[in-house]
Amino acid sequence: MIVSRFKKLRSAIVATAGAGMMGILPTVAQAEWALNLQRPVTEIARVQYDLHMLIMYIVTVIGIIVFGVMFYSIAKFRKSKGAEAAKFSHSTKAEVLWTVIPTLILIAMAVPSTKALLLMEDTTESDMVLKVTGYQWGWQYDYLEEDVSFFSKLATPQSQITGNETKGENYLLEVDNHLVIPAGKKVRLLLTAKDVIHAWWVPQLGGKKDAIPGYINEMWIRADETGTYRGQCAELCGKDHGYMPIVVDVVEEAEYMAWIEAQKNKS
């Protein structure tokens, strides 16, 4: 239902914007029109996704009821159609009903939300620790147990930003050194920052968390699928806030081992 609503909306928007506009759209490889959260690849992201869908269905239904009643009234109770105004100005029954029913709906929403939160906050029994330090403007990653540490900064050339060169497929979402983590392992991230507040966020791996100077925050991820996942800083951190992406390669454990050995030998 929601999908069809979005589809309708999408065509409505496209129609409104006009076919002429389509012509001037940037000629990009993916014309995305993405409508929903990115496909989750960790348990947390999946729980968030399911919760998001559930709540969205609920609010969509509420929205449709409110809009339905409103448009019905607009169509039916117009003076031009000879509608006579009723005189009532309260109804205890109705008022109790529309206080109690929303309360029940909210309680129903609170239960899965609480469960999800408990899951997210459970950082115990992790397999490895990774320290993430935000700075203006990039990220530093420390593999605490391995003594491996490196910086990771935007790799998109300036000429693409200023438009002197065609923008690449991963425009603004590419970095010089990828973060590499093993699939299926619970990775605990310790987040902090050097200068101002940043927030580390890779949508497919789950929610974001603030990196705060002088303080340490934690979150965890366990990716079930190998692949490359991209994200961005999500807290305004100054001039180049828009230019501090995050790229995570999730690889098989053996591959991770080989990679970390190579990193150790590098330094």
């Binding site: 459970d122 115990t124 992790s126 310790l190 002088g214 303080y215 340490i216």
Partner: peptide, 13 residues
């Protein structure tokens, strides 16, 4: 009881 790991971090200014 549920806490199994504690991280102590310093920021030196």
């Amino acid at each position: 009881a549920e806490v199994k790991t504690i991280t102590l971090s310093y920021e030196v200014y």
